[in-house]
């Protein structure tokens, strides 16, 4: 058949089969793939492999393959479960506070008023500063001897003597969460502002003509329209809170007692203070898996609607 002759002529070599477009795509993507393979994919797989060994750096010659023992040990490790519950509490406090404050900030910045631009520049400041500087700042604010929190509350007569804020088991997590929230609110607010701005103005006009009050307009137009953006922000902030480390390192080192002993701190202690890399790897792997599962779940359940 004449057809097949042409067929042969058009498919001469493998290089031809994958045409110019494919070849340039491969060249353009090769660097990024190389980088991500070596700094993201390989480490994750490697830590999975490591998690099957009893690996104490203090005993470099005795590192047996122990199957899932690192994982099964976690089940009976009380401190591990404490750290999980601390992480959950910290995440819940932080994310709900961020949700409320960021929403208010976004609503405010969505209004037209003098000084709006200055204000939106100001709120970028917490976002920009390093977490370590943020931690140092709040450590100083919470300071039991000379801190601003004690000073202000004392001058306003809320307390009659200076308090040891971070040393109080019940207050530690909320106080660290406060420092976290302060730094995360700007980003969350900016993202929410984007979804607010995307609401078409004639929707509000139509609602006004229909006789809706300010409050009704907020409930029936603003909130539903913001839902996708809102969910996105919540997902992102949840991820950030679950893995957060810097504040715990500087403010409390997991203390007092185990009051702020969160998972990321636990992994750090296990790996770099107890030098048991095997179980550290097992826990990091679980954390990574949990993060994947969480984001997959969010994208599956919410993604369709976004």
């Amino acid at each position: 058949m004449a057809n097949t002759a042409i067929h042969k002529a058009t498919r001469r070599s493998l290089l031809d089969r994958y045409g110019y477009e494919e070849r340039s795509a491969v060249l353009f993507l090769a660097p990024v793939m190389l980088v991500l393979m070596s700094v993201a994919v390989f480490p994750i797989l490697y830590s999975f492999y490591l998690s099957f060994f009893r690996m104490k750096l203090t005993r470099p010659n005795n590192q047996p393959f122990i199957w899932f023992e690192n994982y099964s040990d976690l089940l009976t490790n009380e401190l591990f479960w404490v750290s999980v519950s601390r992480t959950v509490v910290f995440t819940l406090i932080s994310v709900s506070a961020i949700a409320v404050i960021a929403l208010l900030v976004a609503l405010l910045l969505n209004q037209e008023f003098k000084g709006r631009r200055v204000l939106s520049t100001i709120i970028l400041i917490p976002w920009a500063i390093p977490y370590v500087a943020n931690a140092l700042m709040w450590k100083w604010i919470y300071d039991s001897g000379y801190g601003a929190l004690n000073g202000a509350l004392y001058q306003l007569d809320f307390i009659d003597k200076y308090m040891v804020w971070l040393g109080d088991q019940d207050k530690t997590l909320p106080l660290i969460a406060n420092a976290f929230v302060w730094k995360e609110v700007p980003l969350a607010a900016i993202l929410l502002l984007v979804s607010l701005k995307a609401i078409p103005a004639d929707l509000y006009q139509a609602a006004r003509v229909d006789g809706a009050t300010v409050w009704q307009r907020f409930i029936h137009i603003t909130l539903p329209a913001m839902k996708p953006g809102f969910m996105l922000v919540m997902i992102y902030e949840t991820m950030m809170a679950i893995r957060h480390f810097d504040l715990f390192f500087i403010l409390t080192e997991g203390g007092p007692g185990d009051a702020s002993h969160v998972l990321s701190w636990h992994i750090y202690v296990e790996t770099f203070r107890n030098l048991s890399f095997g179980s550290g790897a097992a826990m990091s792997y679980l954390l990574a898996l949990a993060t994947f599962a969480l984001s997959y779940f969010f994208i599956r359940t919410l993604g369709r609607r976004i």
């Binding site: 042409i6 058009t10 031809d16 045409g19 110019y20 477009e21």
Partner: peptide, 19 residues
């Protein structure tokens, strides 16, 4: 757009894979 199948010629030269 790449030609999926068949031949495209300019004069008598096949140009299917010429960018």
């Amino acid at each position: 757009e790449e030609v999926s199948d068949g031949a495209l010629r300019f004069d008598d030269q096949m140009v299917n894979y010429v960018p």
